[in-house]
Amino acid sequence: MKKELDENKPIFLQIKEQIEDSIIDGSLNSGERAPSTNEFAKFYQINPATAGKGINELVSEGILIKKRGVGMFVTDEAKGIVIEKRKQTFYENYLLPMKKEAQKLEMDRQELINMLNREDEANGN
């Protein structure tokens, strides 16, 4: 969990992304309980309705499931759904900005590919 929220971004989205990140990196697995609205509100000192909005979106996307009186739990399909979703935004969030910056620097496609290959080698992949 991040220590502080980024005030430049919608807060409910950050709550949502944090839970998704935890699901992807395996710190939150299927069947485990996700932090509650209360816990988020208290930890970050944010309005509970805001935290609730992020959590509710995850419920409607099938990533969390509400068990009355107990809390929010990670569904069996959660990890697959999150990864699929993240692949879709990968293009906008990473690829487009990279291409834009490369253009600014007058780098061509081959240069980009070379760079990727170099990085692979450096990491022994």
Binding site: T37, K42, N47, P48
Partner: peptide, 13 residues
């Protein structure tokens, strides 16, 4: 002050 915010949020919920 921080304590106040914490308690306020907890009790409000």
């Amino acid at each position: 002050r921080k304590k106040f915010y914490e308690i306020l949020l907890e009790d409000y919920q």
